[in-house]
Nucleic acid binder design. Structure first.
Lengths: 335, 335
DNA sequence: CTGTTAGCGCGTTCAG
DNA sequence: CTGAACGCGCTAACAG
């Protein structure tokens, strides 16, 4: 495989000139450009980014570490990240942690080994260890989707507390007094914030007899299914369920189908995260929709700015609003 | 940032011994191991994979180039690839081409620059240029999901022709004689094979008056929507639609909702690609389900074997069967 | 506008 | 079982 010296020799210039041509750095006469271009074509030369990165200390690579690439919410973030990164000349490495802290650590170490220029992280937990680790090694990092406590870091996320608050207000306005929230893992900020928003709406409502139950599980369909079985076996039975993410909502739907419970006639259902239009067979779920694509874009722009700026600067916290989309699953005003 | 020499100095050994420790290559006394381990921890040393790759000629990185990461079919493939690669110590770079040949070429060039050890490609077109390009540069490649003509290459795909044949047989057995297939782009093997399978079933059926129409569009919801409007404005109106992928099926569903056409009472609908259970709010669509995860796994295993073997060996063509999943959208026997 | 020199951090090769 | 020397392919720094 040809290297830069071969190209230089063939074009009758010095290797550094070829380098400048390839990277558009420094000057290069038109005549030289033509000859270099020809030499590259003839030799089918492909620059070696490993060598380049070793020398120049940057790789034009970003990493997106997330918890589940099969979740369309994260897929949409990923698109936002890729589109933005690509426009700025960066390529993106994706890593799946499956909500596992040890997987997260493994990947982060690997990314430092690869000397990626920056990292976008959806942290498995809201503890600060991972962020601190990356910062200690002077790699720019932006946290997406979730809060992290006890550390200064850039964050781009959606206002889960407010979204949950509004969704719960909707249920209250429809007459529901017995609401169960089916949430994700404790220790994950989105799971906790959505419970908190729900709780705030209920306490503000100042209702005497409100049966309110909260369940912490996983952000999976399976877990949503199980939490629903539990929630509906309580008495008084809840008249509305609040699913803290899209997979939980679908698990809840499935459980209620299996139980012969009609939605929304018997039990109303609202959820977090909308599905992309291309995936919705029947528009049905009332949800708080997060601007996932925009979150990916914003986070990436901040990260790239950090990389270029050299200066650590101040830290941004961007909190975008969720949009309440009312569909059939939340039902009508109840008696 | 500490390098291997710093570690060696601190541990009182030669750099090469540290290298052997890290890579588990060659021998290293227990005593040396302990001292090296301590030195790495104290210095917070992180090996530089750029330098390592530059020297050793491999990066332990694979690439998955696909057309649309927001499509759950490809996401599932991606999981299969990642799980398998990860087990074997490889990391994976994902690239989105959006069905664009020029994007594909751009990414492939970039991946060669990064010296990835191997490439998994879902080709935007069934022409051979991309594959030939990669092979010319001696990088192992395995094609997933689609056939490529005119070149020897490993392929892992699903039997689209047979799946479409069986789906069409199902429609015929239900009494449908006027069927329209809404397919993807011409030049994409899966789009063409599904039309071919449909056609074979119809020609075998030996029916006099079978109105059969085919439409080539894109593998998107939008295109599915438009093709459906067209198909249903023909006369005689088709009694069944065959959507060649999941997005097209959802577009068709939406179009029929807008037209006030009931599925399956007025028009039956079958499609290709199932959605993951976690995404199905209401099980409804009758589909030919492809073993996406398994396709990802198999392709990755073949690729890794190729990389390790050094020998080009012979080429595999793995063709997995689609599974027909009958649900409500295909309806009952019609009059 | 172009070239020279030097070295990034590692692993291969060969010698003990 | 361990080490010394060298060079992978490129670009930073400086010189012209």
């Amino acid at each position: 495989m040809a290297n830069i010296r071969d190209v230089a020799k063939r074009a009758g210039v010095a290797p550094i000139t070829v380098s400048r041509y390839i990277n558009n750095s420094g000057y290069c006469s038109l005549e030289a450009r033509v000859r270099i271009k020809a030499a590259i074509a003839e030799l089918e030369y492909i620059p070696n980014r490993l060598a380049s990165g070793l020398r120049s200390k940057h790789t034009n690579t970003l990493a997106l570490v997330l918890t589940d690439i099969t979740n369309p919410f994260f897929t949409t973030i990923a698109r936002g990240v890729e589109d933005t990164a690509s426009d700025a000349g960066y390529t993106v490495v994706f890593c799946n942690t499956d909500e596992s802290v040890s997987e997260e650590q493994k990947y982060l170490h690997m990314l430092l080994e690869q000397r990626v220029d920056g990292i976008l992280l959806v942290p498995a937990l809201s503890t600060s260890d991972s962020v601190t680790f990356i910062q200690a090694h002077h790699t720019p990092i932006v946290v997406i989707d979730r809060r992290v406590s006890g550390v200064k870091v850039d964050v781009v996320r959606c206002d889960s507390e407010m979204g949950a608050y509004e969704l719960t207000r909707l249920l209250l306005s429809l007459g529901h007094r017995h609401i169960s929230i089916l949430s994700g893992p404790m220790g994950v900020s989105t799971a906790e914030d959505r419970v908190a928003g729900c709780e705030r709406a209920l306490s503000e409502a100042d209702i005497e007899d409100h049966g309110w139950q909260k369940y912490y599980g996983l952000f999976t369909q399976q877990s949503g299914y199980e939490m629903t079985l539990q929630a509906l076996s309580n008495s008084p039975k809840p008249t509305a369920l609040f699913a803290a993410n899209n997979f939980i909502a679908i698990g809840a739907l499935k459980a209620m189908q299996d139980l012969g419970v009609r939605v929304p006639e018997d039990v109303a259902l609202v959820g977090f995260d909308d599905l992309p239009p291309a995936l919705i067979t029947f528009p049905f779920l009332t949800v708080a929709a997060q601007p996932a694509y925009e979150m990916g874009r914003k986070a990436t722009r901040i990260l790239i700015a950090k990389i270029s700026a050299e200066t650590t600067g101040e830290f941004h916290e961007v909190v975008l609003p969720a949009e309440i989309v009312v569909r059939r699953s939340s039902g009508q005003v109840i008696g």
